[in-house]
Computed example of a mutant assay.
Amino acid sequence: MTSLQEKSKLLSRWLRHRPDAIGLEIDKRGWVAVAELLLKSASAGVVLTQDELMQIVVENDKQRFSLSEDRTRIRAAQGHSVDVDLKLPVKTPPPVLFHGTAQKFIASIRRQGLLPGTRRDVHLSATKQTASEVGARRGTPVVLLVETFPLLRDGYRFRCSDNGVWLTPTIPARYIRFPDK
């Protein structure tokens, strides 16, 4: 028996990183037909009902999934490592955004800045609390502050996902405020 939480994690994996793991065909905007997802999931041994899927979408604490208006298609809101273009419009971010990371990554970030890693974009939060929760997933959390005006002035662009995560391809270290030790 697979719990709803486990099914949610599998959905993230399939819709963000490994659609091929169950033979999903994701379109260039990241969408997949709900009917196809339910069928392929069952074929892979994970029975997921329409009601369970809707419950996962609605109750996911990070709102990781988006449904099309007619509720026939689903996609991950952000965080893809597969090649998709969510067609999120460029938006002006708030004056300050936050990035949560773990202490063990600070030296690298000081050298290289924020890089997307296996994802397509760097993820930023509008609140310090959210960033701290993100950082805590991988160790002792550290919250970095990013003032957005200098980035905008220098030509950087931001987009905001359906679940409120701010996205940009990279942030050089000179734009990041590190906490005092």
Rank of each mutant, 00 (worst) to 15 (best):
K7P: 09
S8A: 09
K9E: 15
L10D: 15
P19Y: 09
P19R: 13
P19K: 11
D27G: 03
D27A: 02
K28L: 12
K28T: 08
G30K: 13
V34W: 15
E36S: 07
L39E: 10
S41T: 09
A42D: 10
G45Y: 08
V47R: 15
V47W: 15
L48P: 04
L48Y: 12
L48N: 09
E52A: 11
N60M: 11
R64S: 10
R64T: 08
F65T: 05
S66E: 10
R71P: 01
A77W: 13
G79Y: 10
D83G: 09
V84K: 01
L86G: 06
L88F: 07
L88Q: 04
P89H: 03
P89D: 06
V90C: 05
P94K: 12
P95S: 07
L97Y: 02
T101Q: 06
A102I: 01
K104Q: 09
R110K: 07
R111F: 00
D121T: 04
D121R: 12
V122E: 00
V122G: 00
V122M: 03
V122H: 00
S125K: 07
A126H: 08
A131W: 13
S132W: 06
V134D: 14
V134T: 12
V134H: 13
G135W: 00
A136W: 15
A136K: 15
R137Y: 14
R138H: 14
P141S: 10
L144P: 04
L144K: 00
V146E: 02
V146L: 03
F149P: 11
L151N: 05
L151V: 03
L152G: 09
D154M: 05
C160A: 06
D162I: 01
N163Q: 06
G164L: 03
V165T: 13
W166S: 08
L167I: 09
P172L: 01
P172R: 01
Y175E: 00
I176P: 01
I176T: 02
P179H: 09
P179L: 05
